[in-house]
């Protein structure tokens, strides 16, 4: 793994696979009341942070002209 684009793909995989599974498990079958909501919001924040990483990496890739 050496280029921004490759790292971006890897992070996207984490969102698509692992965070999706975590989100599935962090529902009202596991948590009661507001905790399920809190848990979901936290997972969304993680996804958002990782998406921002992907955007930065892609921008870096585009600006470097690779």
């Amino acid at each position: 793994m050496s280029t921004p684009l490759q790292l971006a793909v890897r992070i996207q995989d984490t969102i698509n696979q692992q965070l999706r599974e975590i989100s599935r498990l962090s529902d009202s079958d596991t948590w009661v009341g507001p905790v399920a909501l809190i848990s979901h919001i936290e997972i969304l924040r993680v996804s958002s942070l990782l998406s921002s990483c992907i955007d930065l990496l892609r921008a870096h890739h585009d600006s470097s002209g690779l």
């Binding site: 050496s2 280029t3 921004p4 790292l7 975590i22 962090s26 848990s39 936290e42 997972i43 924040r45 993680v46 942070l49 990782l50 921002s52 990483c53 930065l56 990496l57 870096h60 470097s64």
Partner: peptide, 21 residues
């Protein structure tokens, strides 16, 4: 080439959120 402080900060915050979960 990947050493960008913004990326580092975002990934650290993501790890921290998962840790708390």
């Amino acid at each position: 080439d990947l050493a960008m402080p913004e990326i580092r900060s975002l990934l650290q915050r993501a790890i921290s959120l998962l840790e708390s979960q």
